[in-house]
């Protein structure tokens, strides 16, 4: 009986030891470029005008790996459509920048929302969005 008691105690001990804290994970970092010449916030843009938006992405933890960059576009709240995809490799997996040029459409009052998404190898995503209204 002592052996059996020892068995059960040892098993419970091992289970407890093998349990651990939860790791929520840190989202990869993404932000709009704010330098001169970049649009970095919601704005009204003249129809047919050209603008430039840029984003900076960076891993949030030492062992993180950036995996994919995506830009999607949604018009007047409709479903978003992917307009640009890039698989990241090499140095881009640590830090990545991208500039995106847009020619504003010609329908006055139309609201176009651009979503910039960075995904890391764990499937954690972070996004920034910007809505451009045609005037």
């Amino acid at each position: 009986m002592k052996k059996i008691f020892f068995f059960v105690t040892l098993f419970i001990a091992v289970i407890l030891i093998s349990s651990c804290e939860k790791d929520a994970g840190k989202l990869p970092l993404i932000s709009f470029k704010t330098a001169t010449g970049y649009t970095a916030a919601d704005a009204s843009i003249t129809k047919g005008a050209s603008i430039k938006m840029g984003v900076d992405c960076e891993k949030a933890e030492k062992y993180d790996v950036l995996k994919k960059f995506n830009i999607s576009k949604s018009v007047n709240g409709a479903a978003a459509v992917s307009v640009y995809d890039q698989d990241l490799s090499g140095a881009d997996q640590d830090k990545f920048s991208y500039d995106y040029s847009i020619t504003q459409d010609t329908v006055v009052g139309r609201k176009t929302t651009y979503t910039y998404t960075i995904t890391n190898r764990d499937g954690l995503v972070n996004q920034v969005t910007c809505t451009l209204t045609t005037k």
Partner: peptide
């Protein structure tokens, strides 16, 4: 651990 150098998936099934 699949490419990020650290454990990323960790599941315990009891």
């Amino acid at each position: 651990r699949e490419g990020s150098g650290a454990i990323s998936l960790n599941m315990h099934l009891l």
